[in-house]
Write a protein that binds this DNA or RNA. Sequence first.
DNA 1: ATATTAAATGACAACAGTGTCGTTTTTTAT
DNA 2: ATAAAAAACGACACTGTTGTCATTTAATAT
Lengths: 206, 206
Amino acid sequence: MPKVTEEHKKKRRREILDVAKKVFIKQGFQATTMSDIVSASNMSRGGVYSYFSTTDEMYKAIIAENDQSFEAYFQNLMQMKSYWNALLIYLDDLERSAYDDVREGFGIVAYEYLVMTWREKERIQFFKDRVDQYIKLFAGLIESGVKREEFHPVQSSEAIALMIINTNDAVYLLSMTVGADKARVKDQVKSLKIYLRYVLQVKHIE
Amino acid sequence: MPKVTEEHKKKRRREILDVAKKVFIKQGFQATTMSDIVSASNMSRGGVYSYFSTTDEMYKAIIAENDQSFEAYFQNLMQMKSYWNALLIYLDDLERSAYDDVREGFGIVAYEYLVMTWREKERIQFFKDRVDQYIKLFAGLIESGVKREEFHPVQSSEAIALMIINTNDAVYLLSMTVGADKARVKDQVKSLKIYLRYVLQVKHIE
DNA sequence: ATATTAAATGACAACAGTGTCGTTTTTTAT
DNA sequence: ATAAAAAACGACACTGTTGTCATTTAATAT
């Protein structure tokens, strides 16, 4: 084909990213070759290469989309009347997804990428930015709660935010590798709740 | 050379493992080829192959040694009069090593391996066993504390143990990728202390 | 000293994955 | 219809890695 609409190109790009995401999740980032994605797509080698010339580019595109949709989900949480309730719902969702669909999610791919590539200096900024972005979200929620006098934290919002993120990560990682039961997801979420209720000094609970 | 003592073979094996460990830490597990290790060693390709035929075997050997030395360290902790103090020392060590030598440690390689290989069914048992092993250590410490009426936990020892392990992991992982400061190691350790003091209901503190 | 044994060597064939590029195909404009 | 443009194709040369094996070398036994 030839001189084609922008729309068509966007669609092609989408198709490739969808295929790539599936393949990444199924067999891991590093184990995925360009050839794998070419085979899984219904395009030719050259065709795929004209959109993305490395799996790394694909990863970056997918993770950006993922982060964006997490932000949307998070904005939704922020609409709630009670920020504590928002946190509880977040924790519920975490628990549920650890049981239900961790293994179908892109999360593990993100870990794999992180753990595999942190040695390359030029990527460190990328990771730092992502950490900041996520800290900002949760710290923002906490500070909003403080303004409304729902929370009276005994630690900095950032420290608490990071604890949430870290526990989230740990729960996901372990669930994926040894299963949600063995990872004691329920217990871990409960532990985080215990910690949060204490450090946030939550008023008007539940 | 030829028909050589067991001792000599052990030494050779050691040499190879030492080299492999260095290379793994420097460039990551997956990025390390047999050829890399051959070059880094002062043996020939065939020589190395006669001891280990994959990097996977090397990894398994190294991680076993690592786990063993962690157990030794832990047994040491268990000798202390106060189990709470033992935990505090453990947390101190965690904090210190996150600042000082995370990047020289084998920990990140272990993550990489975990995250890269969990899809292979036959490895899941390996991971499960390791998790159990570590839970057992910490849960054991907690239970000893209970027997001595130092602790009066409000959660199961295993759940608490896992929270320690998870935080440990998260702190290491983040420290390595974005640095100990950005990972707010001090804060995270403090958070864990807060959590522990509450769930363990520690008596005779410090 | 010499023979025996096996440890160690390194060249090599086989394989997997990459990136390119001349060719084909299809769309749009005329 | 036809021409022009570029999207898509896929064969291919290239590179890096692996595992092997005939050969060399050195330790031990006699």
